[in-house]
Computed example of a mutant assay.
Amino acid sequence: MAAPKQPGSGKEFNFVDQDQIWKVHVKIELESAKAWPNKWGFLTTSYKTQEQSHKLKEVVRLELPQHLKTRPPSPPDKYIQVGPSPPVPQTTQALIGWRSAVPELQLERYGKVKCGKKSLLKELGWAFDACI
């Protein structure tokens, strides 16, 4: 009698070999389960300490003084006012920089950025390579 064929393929199926493979897999799983606490058991202790710290935080609640408490955020409408935009230009050439032409919409609201002309190194009489 011919050996039975594995379903879905034309290969012969050996029950004894399959049983041996299954036994090896089960044996490896059992050995791994026994070795796991020695290799990775420290993870469970850190998880337990985290749980304990969360419980302690819930038990010990400190009330902050009034000057250290954060205030609820104020609504943005209170300090930001957005006005209407100017009309959109008709041509694409006029579209470039059309908002910067309006003084209220310019990014530099407080004037242009000015760089200092004095140097701390020059005032102290140090060489320019002193900071490098």
Score class of each variant (00 low, 15 high):
I21Y: 07
S100L: 01
S85D: 11
A33I: 10
S46W: 05
Q50M: 11
E104T: 01
H67N: 14
F13L: 09
E51K: 04
H54V: 02
P7H: 08
E51D: 05
P75G: 02
A130D: 07
A3R: 14
E63I: 06
L30V: 04
W36H: 15
Y79L: 05
I132R: 13
T91D: 04
K23T: 14
Q81I: 05
F15C: 10
A101H: 09
A2C: 07
Y110T: 10
N14H: 11
Q90V: 01
N38Q: 14
K11T: 06
E12T: 12
V16C: 00
P4T: 13
Q50V: 01
E63A: 04
L62V: 15
K11A: 06
Q20D: 00
C131T: 13
K114T: 08
K114Q: 15
Q106V: 10
E58M: 05
A33F: 01
D129F: 11
M1C: 06
Y47A: 14
K55T: 03
L68V: 03
R71Y: 12
A94T: 09
L121W: 04
K114L: 09
Q52D: 15
E12I: 02
E29I: 07
R71D: 05
Q6E: 15
G83C: 03
V59Q: 11
I132T: 14
C115F: 10
T44N: 06
E51C: 00
G116F: 15
T92W: 08
Q6I: 10
W36Q: 07
M1Q: 03
K69P: 02
Y47K: 08
E29Y: 12
V88E: 08
Q20L: 12
A130K: 09
A2T: 11
E31C: 00
A3Q: 11
K112A: 07
E104C: 00
K78L: 11
Y47H: 02
A101T: 15
V82A: 09
I28A: 03
N14Y: 05
P76D: 09
K48L: 07
S74D: 15
S100H: 09
T49P: 00
W126I: 01
E108N: 14
D19I: 09
G41R: 01
V60Y: 03
V102F: 13
V59Y: 05
V60T: 05
T91K: 06
E123H: 03
G10T: 11
S46P: 04
K112Q: 12
Y110P: 02
V59D: 10
K5M: 11
A33H: 04
K55L: 06
K57D: 08
A101K: 15
A127I: 07
Q81E: 10
E31A: 07
A130R: 12
S74W: 08
V26A: 12
E63W: 02
E104W: 01
T49Q: 13
Q6N: 04
K78F: 03
Q20E: 06
